[in-house]
Amino acid sequence: MRSVGWALAAAMMAGCGHTETHRVWFQEPPEPPLGRSTGAELYLGVMPSRPFVEHGLVQAIGYGEDAREKAVLEALRKEGTRQGCDAVVKVRFAQGLTAAHAVGVCVRWSPADKPR
């Protein structure tokens, strides 16, 4: 009887997964990304060579089928883009059995260094 229950639960879980995102600003959120065609860049191991200004932390958590590195980093990048970050730096990723987590620092390139 118990194995039937587990099978039913597994069948219900199949195809299920979602990500959630969070953000917090150090002072002010970055300006909205107007007219930008590219998404936010992710920096996991190295820091960008161009100067930047820190704006806050962005976080993505994936559950179920989205508890994977690809899904969570993609959610983090999308959240960074949506919030107006030029890049998310110092990204840390952690993988669990049922969830995955990524967090990084939202930055904007210094005004003098913006591509024209």
Binding site: A94, V103, G104, V105
Partner: peptide, 9 residues
């Protein structure tokens, strides 16, 4: 000075 932002399971 924020040194570490991480998760563990």
């Amino acid at each position: 000075v924020l040194d570490q932002t991480d998760a563990r399971f």
